[in-house]
Design a binder for these strands. Structure first.
Lengths: 188, 188
DNA sequence: GTCTATAATATGATAGAC
DNA sequence: GTCTATCATATTATAGAC
């Protein structure tokens, strides 16, 4: 087995397990089981569990950058791009109902653990924040672009949290619709 | 030492520790340390760690009911009561910055753990939901009172999550102001 | 009701053979 | 690069003395 490939499979499995069951609750044993390697083999690829978390966050950052870039090429209209972001909670509805938002729940857990990677997890939020800010600036709201970005971000987090708590699809549809209506009032 | 008093002190310490460091991360050892009892003594008062969690959620439910009742007597105006709810994120800003919303973060953790007390934790949300629904009904919006309640709930959760992630006080002030403005448009 | 002692297990991490 | 064997520790939980 190629070393880099094993490393990638560890990151991939840990990513999913951290999301579904939380960082702390995910032991080496279950990751090893998912990747089909022995527990001892881990330490050839990573120094510690914390280092796996670091690699997982790096991978999520890269995936998020790629997603945002893709949206830029797919949609020439900044408003359409923002709508794509707003609809994440609909597109990922099943996962969010079961496990919440991957970014929001990770930052919350790491804050409680006072974990060294807490800042890195927050930078996942920052990626969305700055991208949204750019879109609002393009729409002619440069003066309050960051505030609008945070507004959208906050709303998405709120919907995700309640979607996870109540598993209510109607709620998600309704709130997403309202946020899109709010957005349309900001268009030139 | 009185038995009931010890039990109450265990619940109180566990409540704080579960909130600050998460349920799973909080061991018997640290609770015992906080309450100043031995680990073995726990099992005279509770069958298991899960049972402590159950008691903590019960206590939180009782405290929440008391708070909502207090707001009813303090403020005769339903709009004023809703504003009191909205301002929770300001009143508890320091704790929320450090540990997030006690309800939102607990439900999220228990969902990931697929924990038996998950539904009980969600009922904390339901308490606020139904209380807010009643206030909106009193304001003459009985037809969409639940949707409005969930809107306020979602927003508060979003603000709490971002307040915890970014520790940004201005964001909280700004979003709370906006939500209050939105509320004033609903008044008769 | 509270304590000490201890069981049974799971955890993150290391050593060394292949 | 992967494995087995193992360490040191932490965890929930129990047994029994006081």
């Amino acid at each position: 087995m190629n070393g880099a490939a094993t490393r990638a499979r560890i990151i991939d499995a840990a990513d999913q397990l951290f999301y579904r069951h939380g960082y702390e609750h995910t032991s080496f044993a279950v990751i090893a089981d998912a990747v089909q390697i022995s527990r001892g083999n881990f330490y050839h690829h990573f120094k510690s569990k914390d280092h796996i978390l670091g690699a997982v966050i790096e991978a999520r950052l890269a995936a998020t950058r790629q997603l945002l870039d893709q949206w830029e090429t797919e949609d020439a209209d900044p408003a359409g791009r923002i709508k794509k972001f707003i609809h994440i909670v609909v597109a990922n509805q099943v996962d969010i109902q079961n496990y919440g938002c991957p970014v929001g729940t990770l930052t919350a857990e790491l804050a409680k653990l006072d974990h060294p990677s807490r800042a890195a997890a927050t930078s996942l939020f920052t990626l969305y924040r700055e991208w949204l800010r750019d879109q609002f600036a393009l729409l002619g709201h440069a003066d309050r672009a960051d505030a609008l970005a945070m507004h959208v971000l906050a709303f998405s987090q709120g919907i995700a949290t309640l979607s996870n708590a109540f598993r209510d699809e109607e709620l998600v549809q309704r709130e997403v619709q309202q946020l899109c209506d709010w957005l349309s009032f900001l268009l030139p």
